[in-house]
Write a protein that binds this DNA or RNA. Structure first.
Length: 264
DNA sequence: ATGGTAGGTCTCCTA
């Protein structure tokens, strides 16, 4: 039985509970990974999601900021978390399916506005977070795994509306792209979205600040689905649900999907 | 070059 996984930075799971339910009803991913829940775990409306078949939730939360959750129709056990870069933030959680596949859900720090760690502590924390990920996957190669989340980096030229104009903008600077590439290489991770859709512009985030986000279309691909090579070859039907960015009172991110032809 | 919007919260911090 193939399974579908989706990742979505929801920007408050409590405010957008109805949008989460809408996505669950319309798209029915087997696994939905959320970031920026901005909620303690016991205040996530899990009971409402359970009624739609999402009987398993593995989450980490804190009040007001960050927060990650994996909602699953498939049985899943908690596979832990890690406080990357020692920030004390809820930015990572992992779950394991009965088929042995581990799902990592990440919310990488945005990194502030100035792409210089001397002038902006947040940028340094972002780079350190990525360096720790690289080192961890280098010292222990991931087994059959899927890594998803808001990685807050758009790596390719066709992952942004203007490569040239974003070279000094946090999320697309060469040093961030390099750090992300090192994480990918260390774990042997395959970018399944780009494996599946190798050509053309692809965005998953559009700023709230644009007058008309759809017409201006100044997007970036910040949200990713990676997989280890042993299972990446079974991935297909990748898509980004741009329409969700146009829903009422939307998140500034659109959900990203992939389907894996594996025994769940 | 600037400022634009959104969410949550010990009214400013984060994105």
């Amino acid at each position: 039985m193939p399974f579908t996984i989706a990742t979505w930075n929801i920007n408050s799971v409590r405010l957008r509970e109805e949008l989460v339910r809408k996505l669950m009803k319309k798209e029915r991913p087997d696994i939905l990974c959320l970031q920026e829940c901005k909620s303690p775990v016991d205040k996530i409306p899990f009971a409402k999601f359970k009624r739609l078949g999402y009987t398993h939730m593995i989450a980490r939360g804190q009040k007001g900021y960050n927060g990650v959750a994996i909602l699953s129709k498939l049985p899943m056990e908690d596979a832990g978390d890690r406080d990357w870069a020692g920030l004390g933030h809820a930015r990572h959680v992992a779950g394991r399916l009965e088929n042995g596949v581990t799902i990592h859900n990440f919310y990488v720090p945005a990194g502030g506005d100035v792409p210089d760690r001397e002038k902006n502590e947040k940028f340094g924390q972002k780079l350190d977070f990525l360096t720790e990920m690289r080192d961890a996957y280098h010292s222990e190669k991931p087994g059959k795994s899927i890594l998803v989340g808001d990685l807050n980096i758009a790596p390719r030229e066709d992952d942004v509306w203007s490569h040239k104009q974003l070279l000094k903008v946090v999320s697309h600077t060469p040093i961030e792209v390099e750090h992300l590439a090192e994480v990918q290489e260390a774990g042997g991770w395959v970018d399944t979205t780009r494996n599946d859709i190798p050509e053309g512009l692809l965005y998953s985030w559009w700023s709230y600040r644009a007058k008309d986000w759809n017409a201006a279309d100044k997007g970036r691909r910040l949200d990713h689905i990676w997989a280890t090579p042993d299972i990446a070859s079974s991935a297909h039907s990748s898509k980004i649900l741009r329409a969700a960015r146009g829903w009422e009172q939307p998140s500034d991110h659109a959900p990203v999907f992939a389907t894996f032809d594996l025994q769940a």
